[in-house]
């Protein structure tokens, strides 16, 4: 077994690792280095300033607001998304009426159609989704308020993105809307491969369908749920929250900093204010938050693997 092992290992790792080190690690190492400088991003000159950027960050109210919102994004968006997705896929796969002579557990009629329709938002890039919802949230002639007026709720005309109390929730809802479908398809696939005997056994034991969800479905899907959580949380901390906040919100990041997130703040400092060094400092903080998030999920999620 050992023959040529190291040669093999090196041979297999060299190219991926090389590519990764070159295009990912090295630029990031440089970025971290810049967080100790006063680099503006607009000229090659800079000098070292030690921990100035870091102490400035700790005193920066906007930074703390954006940190808090980012944490909310990483925790709530995956929670709601995966929760909904589990619920829907359970409905699709297990919610069907028992037909005479059919299997104990069936999907609802038209389950295939649901899986297609639910996946729709996933084929749109998040930027397009944000753009669509910006129209929908328009308080004056937007789709949602028009609809509310249409059903006689004239008194209920929220400002949506214009109201600091609900703007953040509006933005999160868009992320949930656009990603639930993907996980429905993923989880449905997982549920479909759970042997029906397991359900049957549970039902025979007198379990209701809902308890079978917690006794059978969830434990067997746990690994998928967990990687989904990490994947979704990282997206919600990074690229996706940037796109929705940047495109949809007041300012962007408002009203009154109620929706600003770390990744937006990085962008604004680097590409608007000419403070690239400070931007990288916030980026380093974002890195720490993301790593902590991933570690937390992996730790909480660790449990005995079920074999059957």
């Amino acid at each position: 077994m050992q023959h040529g092992k190291y040669r093999f290992i090196v041979g297999f790792l060299a190219v991926p690792l090389g590519l990764y080190a070159l295009f990912v690690i090295w630029p990031f190492v440089q970025s971290i280095y810049y967080s100790f400088t006063d680099w503006t991003g607009l000229s090659p000159e800079f000098s070292m300033v030690g921990f100035d950027n870091y102490s400035r960050m700790l005193d920066d109210d906007i930074f703390w607001k954006s940190l808090w919102h980012s944490v909310l994004f990483a925790l709530l968006v995956p929670l709601v998304t995966l929760g909904l997705a589990l619920f829907f896929s359970f409905m699709i796969n297990v919610g069907g009426r028992k037909r005479k002579g059919g299997p104990v557990i069936t999907g609802v009629r038209g389950s295939g159609l649901y899986k297609i329709v639910y996946f729709f938002p996933q084929v749109l890039s998040i930027a397009i989704v944000a753009l669509l919802f910006q129209f929908a949230y328009n308080p004056d002639s937007g789709a949602i308020n028009s609809l509310l007026r249409g059903v006689g709720l004239d008194s209920l005309q929220p400002l949506w993105l214009g109201d600091p109390d609900i703007a953040l929730w509006c933005v999160m809802a868009v992320l949930v809307w656009s990603t639930v479908g993907f996980f429905v398809v993923l989880f449905s696939a997982g549920m479909a491969s759970i042997p029906a005997e397991l359900y049957e056994a549970a039902l025979l034991d007198g379990a209701s369908r809902f308890t079978t969800f917690f006794k059978v479905t969830l434990p067997l899907l746990w690994d998928t749920v967990q990687s989904g959580w990490v994947y979704m949380g990282i997206l919600a901390l990074g690229a996706e929250s940037f796109a929705v906040v940047q495109i949809m919100t007041t300012g962007p990041g408002g009203p009154d900093y109620s929706t600003t997130v770390m990744v937006l703040y990085v962008y604004q400092k680097a590409f608007r204010d000419g403070q690239a060094a400070y931007a990288t400092t916030i980026g380093v903080a974002l890195l720490v938050v993301t790593l902590a998030f991933a570690a937390l999920v992996m730790k909480l999620g660790r449990r005995e693997r079920l074999e059957y």
Partner: peptide, 28 residues
């Protein structure tokens, strides 16, 4: 995967008592 619409009886459940009667109503 269990084909949802195929109607192929993968597992007959008629013989099972109690739990399934309840299950039927609940199912609806």
């Amino acid at each position: 995967p269990v084909p949802a619409e195929s109607g192929t009886p993968v597992h007959k459940a008629e013989a099972s008592p109690g739990g399934l009667e309840k299950g039927k109503k609940e199912g609806t």
